[in-house]
Every structure is written in structure tokens, then in C-alpha cells.
Write a protein that binds this DNA or RNA. Sequence first.
DNA 1: CATGAATGAGTGTTCATTCAT
DNA 2: AATGAATGAACACTCATTCAT
Lengths: 219, 219, 219, 219
Amino acid sequence: MPSVKAKPAKTAEPRSRDADRSQLAILLAARDEFAQHGLGGARVDRIAERADVNKRLIYYYFTSKDELFLAVLEQAYADIREAENQLHLRDMPPAQAIQRLTQFTWEYYIAHPEFLTLLNSENLHQGRHLAMSGRVRDMNSPLIQTLAEILERGRSEGLFRGGIDPIQLYVSIAGMAYFYLSNNHTLSAIFGRDLMTPKARHERLSHMCDVILGYVLRN
Amino acid sequence: MPSVKAKPAKTAEPRSRDADRSQLAILLAARDEFAQHGLGGARVDRIAERADVNKRLIYYYFTSKDELFLAVLEQAYADIREAENQLHLRDMPPAQAIQRLTQFTWEYYIAHPEFLTLLNSENLHQGRHLAMSGRVRDMNSPLIQTLAEILERGRSEGLFRGGIDPIQLYVSIAGMAYFYLSNNHTLSAIFGRDLMTPKARHERLSHMCDVILGYVLRN
Amino acid sequence: MPSVKAKPAKTAEPRSRDADRSQLAILLAARDEFAQHGLGGARVDRIAERADVNKRLIYYYFTSKDELFLAVLEQAYADIREAENQLHLRDMPPAQAIQRLTQFTWEYYIAHPEFLTLLNSENLHQGRHLAMSGRVRDMNSPLIQTLAEILERGRSEGLFRGGIDPIQLYVSIAGMAYFYLSNNHTLSAIFGRDLMTPKARHERLSHMCDVILGYVLRN
Amino acid sequence: MPSVKAKPAKTAEPRSRDADRSQLAILLAARDEFAQHGLGGARVDRIAERADVNKRLIYYYFTSKDELFLAVLEQAYADIREAENQLHLRDMPPAQAIQRLTQFTWEYYIAHPEFLTLLNSENLHQGRHLAMSGRVRDMNSPLIQTLAEILERGRSEGLFRGGIDPIQLYVSIAGMAYFYLSNNHTLSAIFGRDLMTPKARHERLSHMCDVILGYVLRN
DNA sequence: CATGAATGAGTGTTCATTCAT
DNA sequence: AATGAATGAACACTCATTCAT
């Protein structure tokens, strides 16, 4: 069975002469650093340390901190899209599909907290990195198309109410999850209650499903 | 021998009005700067410029950048609480109160975009400023109490479903507004559609009310 | 007897709380550093060291390396103009005035080798600093005007030939001195002869006077 | 089976013509880069780009930036010497030879502005590259010898004044041209007059000839 | 109450150069 | 003969903060 990698599988590779590996290490380290400190608070030095590469190499491959941030952002979008594609919502009954999407969104955000802070950073900077991205169009989530189809199916089956904008619905699902998780610290402080206990998390998901289905379902 | 200082030597004043004026100017300037650039990206120099005061004065009154940030944060919470108190939701029929709250949240966030970014910054820093605040407890929104009463009233009148957690509901309302507005730039880029036109804003509020009332109302 | 300085003559001044002194120290240190290494080769760190001030202070007063260079350049021009003004060429007989100017130019360049390298740097950068200077116009050497008058006087007295452009003449005098001194190293290497011995210097000045007077004088 | 390589497989060639080509490309690119930015401001990366070769190749052939600069410098001297040799001043009447030399110097500097900046750079660095050159001696311009002969011929014919040092004369001719051209930017700024118009250039050459011949010729 | 002067520790970025093939 | 990957030392410039009055 042949290796998938294009690179010849040399025995005993020199530890650090691997362009792909270096690039990936930088990307992952940068993702974590940007997620933890935001774009402004992230330190290129720290990224180099995390990735265990020479700082200069970051510039060799990514030109600047901003371009590195963009690369991280694009990767983050590529990742969530990939995960969405694995859901196969089209193969489910409409109500189940909506519930599955809600659950997925919730769980993906929990598993990938960096996604939330990366988006926050990009929005703080008014989306100027994404605006310069050649790959933004590819990010146009096909999920919206899928969601539209599910809503239409639900409606024609008499289950769902009509006139639901899939984008509005998607933003609502995401928003309910996002706000709770992204603002967890301030909310916990103000309400004086830990929002991240397993129980609290379970209740949140449950609530979200109730709200979304309560809205979508006829009656 | 009279004082050389230009400032009028008022006889009995609670220790200079200039002090208050400078302090307020700094606070407002800081709010804008932090909102625009985040905590990490904000520059003390720029705040001094915006407030038209000597940079040293900022330290004189607020000790450090972090304490200034906290002061801004506390002010932001005080402001929204003040606004919430003006709503008099208790005086309305339950369904109307819920709708009014939804609308208020939406409109307040639009009128005070700085509130969103300030919260984002604080959460990026894991709520550590709020944690040091002596006034957090005061921020425990009485709105939750009010909301609980409204929900109970609606339930006892047979209008609302039972078992609704007011905190969950509040977070959902806020989240649907917050996410749309705070992530406006990335969402607009990805969906290729301007989410901030008057029409789009109107539709969003309408959708939010539908979702929330669809959930709250029995049937 | 009152102090000329505007600043009150405090006894026991704190060693380093003197804005003027710091600024001047920076300017002098920068002049030497730029002269020695050129604009590109000059190091801000080294300037700070030479001036014995904190590096940050350089930016505090001069904003950037380029603006500092401009300040140095402007000072250099101000200095030579000041020296030219002391010559009182107008009070001399024409031939003597020309000779005096030649000698002055020669000696000023020798005493101020930094002037030559500063000009070389500025010209390497195509005069872009001077182009941004608000004070360029003030640098329009009144010497040219004086020279024109001297030439006219000499001509009307029947001593000088007519039709001499004072700018051309000035550039020739300066050029003969400048090239010899500025390119001293390459010339010495190529001709295999030290051009900077007292004797060689004396001969050069003598030659220059011969050439210039040989040209200017009728016959 | 023929070689795939585009390069013709010459049988007996002194080890590849590509090598020479790359070396020359580097040399020319370096000359332009050094001329434009000076030694300190020149970038090895940019030279590689200009020459369209891998940066590493520059080190392969020239060892270091400084040695490359020296190579460029030596080439520049070789070039001007070659051009001087084409003048055949010896075959002309003395006065014409002097005039021809003046004109040649002027025109060569205009056609080769890089020569001026290269020399400036080398002198800024106190001639330390040339000092290390094994070929400096070859640069000892035979022109000086020629010039001496011309001056002697002119003197013995009763045309020229005696006692003229050919080196002094050469430096004066070169200096009058060099200063005008090399310092063109600062001079233009200060005199507020474009020194590089065709008319201005013509006048300069004319003036130079007047000065030099006015000096050299008896009377 | 207010401020101009000053600073140590960093900040993203650059540069000539070397490594390994 | 040629090259993509990698690096240490710098570099211009910045920042929150303190000094001294």
C-alpha cells in the first residue's frame, strides 16, 4: 500500500528539514497563540517557541503576523466546514436534522474554543483579513444550502412553519451557543454561577434545542 | 495674595470640578479606544489624546491600564442596567414584556457597539478584571429577577410554557442579537450579504421575536 | 548681569532633566554617527549610546530616524551658512574675495568632514529628506548673491572676465575641494600617494586658487 | 538518447558557460543595487532577484557581500580605464586633448551614474575594500601618465603654463563634474533650479572647459 | 491638580549568512 | 552547478509606566 504523501519516504529524516512539518507546526502554534491572546496580544516570539522553530522561519513561510493570522483563520474555517460535511444532515428526517445541527454546533464550539476567539479577533479588526483572502468564497458554508433544503422538506411535510430564512436560523443556533461559551467568564461572574459544569452544559444544549424546535415546528 | 491659577477659586465646592471632568473625559476616551482596539490593542497614548489630557493624568486617576479597563467595564454594565431599569417590564402583559426585552436588547447593542467588544475583550482575558471588581455583585442583573416574575406570570395565566430558566432565556435573547452584531463582519464576508442594511436589521429583530415567542408561548 | 538663557538658572540642576541639553546631545551624536556610517549604516542604538541618552528619547524628540537625519542635515546647512556669513567677502577687493572664498571652502570641508558625508548620504537618497524640509528655502545660500556682486565688481573694474555664472563658479570651487577630500581614500589608493599630508593639502589649495583665479581673471 | 537539458552539450568547453552567465548577471545586478542603495543599503536578496539567480549562488561565487562589492568596484574601474584608453589623447594637439578629456569625464559620469555612487560608498567605508584588492595597482590610471605628457608637450610648445601637476589637474576636472552630478539633488533643492536639463548640462560642460583651459593655457 | 522628561523591556521584522542535499 | 530550508544577531520602533517638579 503506497504512501499517500508525495514526499519520498526517506528513512531517518533529518529532524528539521521538513518544510511541510515546519509550516504545520507554525500554523498550529499560531492558532493556539491567537486563540489565547487575540491578534493584538499574540506574540510572534511565543508562536516560534510553541512551534519550536526559529522565529525567522515564520516570516519565511508566512510573510507577516497578519498573513499568518489569515492562514490560521482560513484553516479554522476549512476545519469546521469539513466537520459540517460529515454530518450528512440531508439523510435525516427534518426535525432530527435540525436537532443534530444544534447539537453539532454546540459540541464543535466546545471542542474548538479557539474558533470562537479567532472570530472575535477578526471581527474586532472588522474582518479585514478575511476581506483580503482569496479563499473567502470557498468558505460560503454549503450548510446554508442544506439547511434550506431541510426547512423546505419539513415545511412540505407539514411539520415546519414556512418562511424561515436558513441564514437567520443558522445565526440563531450559532449565536445561542457562541454567546454562552464565548462570554462564559463574564456571565459566570455576573450570575454567580459556573456555566461550564457538565450539568450546566447539558441544560444549555437542552434549552437550545427547545428554543429552536419550538420555533421551527408548526404549533 | 490670590492664586495665580486660571481656574476660578470657588469657595465651597467638593474639591474641584475639573477633576471630575478630566476623569470623565478619560473614561469616555478609554471606552472608545478599548472598544475599537480591544484591551491589548488599545494605546494609553491614544486615550490621552482622545481625552485631551496629559498621559500622566490617566495614571494619576486610574493607576494602570488594567484598572482603567475595569472602570470602563463597570461603567458599561452600570449603563446597561440603568437602561434596563427604564423598561418597566413588570408593568406590561407577559408576552409584550418578552417582546419588549428582545427589542430592547437588539437596539441597545446596536446603539452601544462598544459594549460588545468590551465584553469580548474581558472574556478573552478570562474575566480577570471583573473577578477583581468589588462591584460585580451589583451587576447581578435584577433583570433576571424581573424576567423570572414575568415568566411565572405568563405561565400562571396559561400563556407561557412552564419550566423556563430565565437565565437561559436571557442568554438566548442576548446571544441571538450579540452574535449577529458582533460577528457581523465575518458573517457578511462569508454569506456575501450586508447584514447591516436597515432592511436586514429589521428582519433580524423580527426573526428573533418569532423565535423567542415561538418558544415561550404555549403551542 | 542677567543670564542669556531663558531657563531660570537653578542651582544644582538635575543631571538629566534638561530637554534642550538632551536634544542637542542627540543631534550631535546623530551627526557623527550619520557622518561615519551614512544614513543606512547608522544605528539608532549607537546614537543613543554616543549621546548618553535612552534610545526612546530619540523618538520622543525626533519621531524617526529619517526625521532625525533631516534635523542633522538642516543643522549642517545652518552651520555652514553661519560660517559663510562671517566671511564679509563684500568688504574685500574682488580677487581677494574669490581667493578667500576658495580657501574658506577648502578649510571648512577639512574642519567639517561630516558635512561631506552627510551630503553624500542625502544625495544617495535623492534628496528626499531635504525635499520634505520646510527650511530648504532658508538654505538658499545668500553667498550666491554675494558672489554675483563680487563678480560684477571685478568685471566693472576690468579685472575679471564677464559672463561668469556665480552658481557655476561656486560649484566648481566646492567640487574641486569636495572631490579631493570626499574621495580621498580611493584616490590615495589608486595614485598610491597620501593626499592628506600637510604638504599635499597645501598644494591642493594652492592649485585650486590657481585654477579659479586663472579662470576668473582677465588674461 | 539526447540530454533533456536545454543547454547545448558542447563537447570541449571550459567548464560550462552557464557559470559565466550567472556570475555576470550577479555582477551587473549587484552593481545596480549598490549604486542605487549604497553598500549598507543594498540587499543581497534584491541582488538575487535582479540577477534572477538563487541567493545562495551569490555566496557560491562571491563569498560575501563585501567581496561582491569589491568585485563590482574593480569592474567599474576596469570599465572606465577601458573607456579612457579609447580616447587616444596622445594623438591630439595638447589643448584639444585637454578639452576632450574634460568632455569625456563629464559624459562618462553622466552615462555611468553608478560609478559615482560606488565611489561614494567605498569612500564612506574609507577605501577598505580597495585596500584589500589585489588589482588596485592595475587601476593606477595610465591616464595620469598620458596627461603628464600632454601637459609637457603643451608647455614646450609655449601654449601651456608650466608646473602643472597632472594629478591635481585630473582631480580638478573630475571634481567639477563629479560634484555637480553626484550632489545634483541637494544642489537643485537649494538653488531651486533643475541642474539636469539638457541646457543646464550643456552650460556646465562649457563652464568646465572654460575653467580648465583658462587655467592651463598661457595668458 | 497637572505635566514634560525619561526609561526598560519588548515587538514585529530584516539581514547576511549557513546547512544539507 | 545549483537550491530550498533554516538561523542568530540585529534593527527601527513601541509601550506602559515612572521620575521630578
